[in-house]
Design a protein around this nucleic acid. Structure first.
Lengths: 204, 204
DNA sequence: TTATATATTGAACTATAATTCAATATATAA
DNA sequence: TTATATATTGAATTATAGTTCAATATATAA
């Protein structure tokens, strides 16, 4: 016999993780169509053929990343939804958290960028389209609900909660794409400025 | 002899315009890497080979579109810069104009989306990179100047004018990408909500 | 040390997309 | 009508990228 099954599992998972890390970088920066398997393999320091020992196809890597990213985003959204607090504070918490994490975590920034690109792209694998179809709405719905709550509480500006949610997420998308591709800045603009779009009181 | 030179010129320009219209649609929806020459030709109703009678390469079509788009954006920015008015009004005018035009003109929406994608993509032809390098800054600079003017006049919120400009354009980018790829809505959220991010007074 | 299961490589293969080109169609000046 | 310059086609060619595979390396249980 050779290695135990457990050892192999461990190696397998470590390699897959390496591939995922590099693939995320590439997909976030270049989009699905613009990313080359060759480049991912090169960045991960392995032969191109080895990619297919761990992932069935380019589509499969992308699908894996997207599924993981959407799940994390949804989990975070649910966390905001379940907070026992004023809508105003939920909104401020969410924005601060997103801003802070984009600033401090390269991987999170790339993840935001990946989702933003995938949700707005028409040239992604059908599996991914279906995945997005099923998981995309929750963050929009939750933010819309929080906006509605805030309007009842008098802290959030007037307007369709759904439109406010679109404004919220599209602005986050735009920012994360910008900061994922522009190396220089590193720091994000003050989150309070962004929050002012939704909150009535300026003194936050 | 056959046709006069003038007649040929006319045909040539009409065909190029047809190609540009369809290419813009495709590039805006799929990005540079995700767009196929075959699809542009098909959409334009011509043989694939004919594309190369009018444009040297896929790169050349893209470059042509980007140059045109950047020039239009810069012209519009200069128009805002030269307005003899309070910063507050310049900002409101700019946002209202952009929102209104994204709403009413498919082509403008696609153009916004094209620029947003190109400026944030690392997989575009080098010529286009250079083009963007040279022409991208003006809209950012002009909005930053207007923000500074507004801060002096007391109408614009505190914070680095440059950061405010980034927030301005990345949010526009996010929105235009969203509305270019999601067919259903058609109408944009109220521009005043977006404007509230930058203006101190809520009663606009 | 040896046997063996799995990891790894790199070249071959296949699929897809960009580009070229020889052949043909077309419009108009003569 | 005819000659001819240019438009147009579609198939051939070339380039690029994804995938497969036979050969080889490696780690460890026995």
């Amino acid at each position: 016999m050779a290695r135990t099954e457990q050892q192999n599992q461990q190696i397998r998972e470590a390699r897959k993780e390496m591939i995922r890390v590099e693939a995320l970088k590439q997909f976030a920066a270049k989009g699905f169509a613009g990313t080359r398997i060759k480049d991912i393999a090169q960045a991960a320091g392995i032969a191109q053929g080895l990619m297919y020992h761990y992932y069935q196809s380019k589509d499969a890597i992308f699908t894996d990343l997207i599924e993981d990213a959407l799940d994390k985003l949804n989990q975070a959204s649910i966390h905001v939804k379940n907070m026992d607090n004023l809508a105003k504070n939920k909104i401020l918490y969410a924005i601060r958290k997103i801003y802070k994490t984009i600033e401090t975590s390269e991987r999170f920034k790339q993840t935001c960028c990946l989702i933003a690109q995938a949700e707005n792209s028409t040239v992604i694998p059908v599996d991914v389209k279906i995945l997005i179809e099923g998981k995309r709405d929750l963050p929009y719905e939750i933010i819309a609900e929080v906006m509605k709550q805030g309007q009842k509480e008098g802290s959030v500006v007037e307007g369709s909660p759904h439109e406010l949610a679109i404004l919220f997420w599209t602005s986050i998308d735009g920012l994360s794409i910008y900061y994922a591709t522009h190396k220089n800045p590193g720091y994000m603009p003050d989150y309070k400025i962004f929050a002012a779009m939704f909150l009535k009181e300026k003194n936050i």
